[in-house]
């Protein structure tokens, strides 16, 4: 199967309360060397046929990301399944 991965992140200048909460929790684990945490989401789109990056971009733009506050990246991924069927 052909998989397209969409990574959605809050734009760098946007406040990320979730990331901040994690960053604030790290010292309690004894981690002091991490200065900043940003949290986003990863979406995997399985195409039935050839993966269509343009289509994936359109999906991301219209549905997966809120482009007012988020940016996204679209990339192809060789999934484990794909690798196996390709043998």
């Amino acid at each position: 199967m052909a998989r397209v991965v969409v990574d959605v992140m809050l734009k760098p200048e946007i406040l990320d309360p979730q990331g901040q909460a994690v960053a604030n929790a790290l010292p309690r684990l004894g981690v002091t060397e991490v200065s900043s945490v940003r949290i986003g989401k990863r979406i995997e789109l399985e195409f039935t046929g050839e993966p269509d990056l343009d289509k994936a971009r359109e999906i991301a733009d219209k549905l997966l990301a809120n482009t007012v506050i988020e940016s996204f990246e679209v990339r192809l991924e060789e999934s484990a399944d794909t690798a196996r069927t390709a043998q």
């Binding site: 809050l10 734009k11 760098p12 200048e13 946007i14 406040l15 990320d16 309360p17 901040q20 506050i69």
Partner: peptide
């Protein structure tokens, strides 16, 4: 891009 002002995001827990 990164010097443009951004949408204010609230954090109710803060």
């Amino acid at each position: 891009e990164d010097s443009r002002p951004a949408v204010q995001v609230g954090d109710p827990f803060t």
